[in-house]
Computed example of a mutant assay.
Amino acid sequence: MQDMTPAPRPWRGFLPAFAAALTACGGGSATSAPAPAPAAVAASAPAPSNKWALVWSDEFDGSAGTVPNAAHWNYDLGNAENSGWGNHEHQYYTANARNAQLDGAGMLVITAEKAANPGPCWNGAPCGYTSARIHTSNKVNFTYGKVEARMKLPSGQGIWPAFWSLGQTGQWPASGEIDIMEFIGKTPNATYGTAHGTGYSGAQGIGKPRDFGGPVADDFHTYTIVKRVNEIIWYVDGTEYHRLTPASLPAGSPWVFEKPFFVILNLAIGGDWPGAPDATTVLPARMLVDWVRIYKEN
């Protein structure tokens, strides 16, 4: 990042320790020392041109079994420590390579699997699963531009993969949340794009489904947002399906998106929205990420 200027359902990202200035990983985990200032992907809003220049990417090109690049990615950890991530989720997030590693063929693989008591869940019982949630807070962020990932998602009851972003500063929901892609196994033919802010958070988030007309998990797809001043646009495979402007918000609600955001990738199991896994759920479940890219608009 050097030399750069660079629907309705429960809240996707619970951040109980989110302070006025975020200096830890999204999810409220504490750190022992302040993190360095993140490189900004875009310092000011470009004029709309639909001409794009790549300013950052992770192509996940590395040896099989290696973990995500620490220069780009942090880990969120636990479950009970973060109140089930605000959604009564069933997985315990780890930094173990079993849950997030490169496959040696240009893919990041986030794996959710059954586990024997990896740590406590929000309800006091041992969590039954492990998975991973990684993010770029205080390492890579974007204010404006195009942000996208090419991914192949797992399917099954209780499966909940997501590609999303949170405002680098502020307390949720005033910090803002942009869900670039969410998928739940009980609606196998659709993904969802949603925005959250003060007055339109949680179940009142402003979102739309994107109907694929067949199982989402059958193939790779590219999930994108374009973020400009007073505008966010969602795409799947280059086709727009949702657009948000200040005029879209409930009366009196603030537009909270003119600030840097960071990127999050995770694979949750269970929760208020997808429901618990059942006997039909195939585990391990694997979320494949071919690449994540951020562009500025010329």
Score class of each variant (00 low, 15 high):
residue 150 R to E: 11
residue 146 K to I: 04
residue 213 G to V: 09
residue 171 Q to Y: 00
residue 142 F to W: 15
residue 67 V to P: 00
residue 22 L to I: 08
residue 220 F to Q: 11
residue 185 G to Y: 06
residue 155 S to I: 03
residue 19 A to T: 13
residue 44 S to D: 13
residue 210 R to V: 03
residue 146 K to N: 01
residue 254 P to K: 13
residue 65 G to M: 05
residue 149 A to L: 05
residue 234 W to N: 08
residue 136 T to W: 06
residue 234 W to Q: 07
residue 278 D to V: 00
residue 128 G to Y: 07
residue 23 T to W: 11
residue 278 D to Y: 04
residue 235 Y to W: 10
residue 261 F to P: 00
residue 224 T to G: 02
residue 64 A to T: 06
residue 129 Y to L: 12
residue 72 H to S: 13
residue 206 I to F: 02
residue 257 F to R: 09
residue 155 S to W: 03
residue 141 N to Y: 09
residue 297 E to R: 05
residue 236 V to Q: 09
residue 269 I to H: 08
residue 128 G to H: 05
residue 252 G to N: 12
residue 100 A to R: 11
residue 215 P to Y: 05
residue 155 S to A: 15
residue 198 T to F: 01
residue 110 I to R: 10
residue 58 D to V: 00
residue 105 A to R: 15
residue 103 D to N: 15
residue 19 A to L: 14
residue 280 T to E: 03
residue 263 V to T: 12
residue 35 A to D: 09
residue 198 T to A: 13
residue 297 E to K: 08
residue 25 C to A: 12
residue 47 A to S: 09
residue 42 A to K: 06
residue 70 A to F: 04
residue 18 F to I: 04
residue 232 I to N: 12
residue 31 T to W: 13
residue 289 V to E: 04
residue 255 W to T: 00
residue 279 A to R: 10
residue 186 K to C: 01
residue 115 A to E: 04
residue 270 G to E: 02
residue 284 P to T: 13
residue 192 Y to P: 00
residue 176 G to W: 04
residue 156 G to K: 03
residue 70 A to W: 03
residue 102 L to W: 11
residue 7 A to H: 12
residue 254 P to T: 10
residue 82 N to W: 05
residue 261 F to T: 00
residue 277 P to C: 07
residue 148 E to G: 04
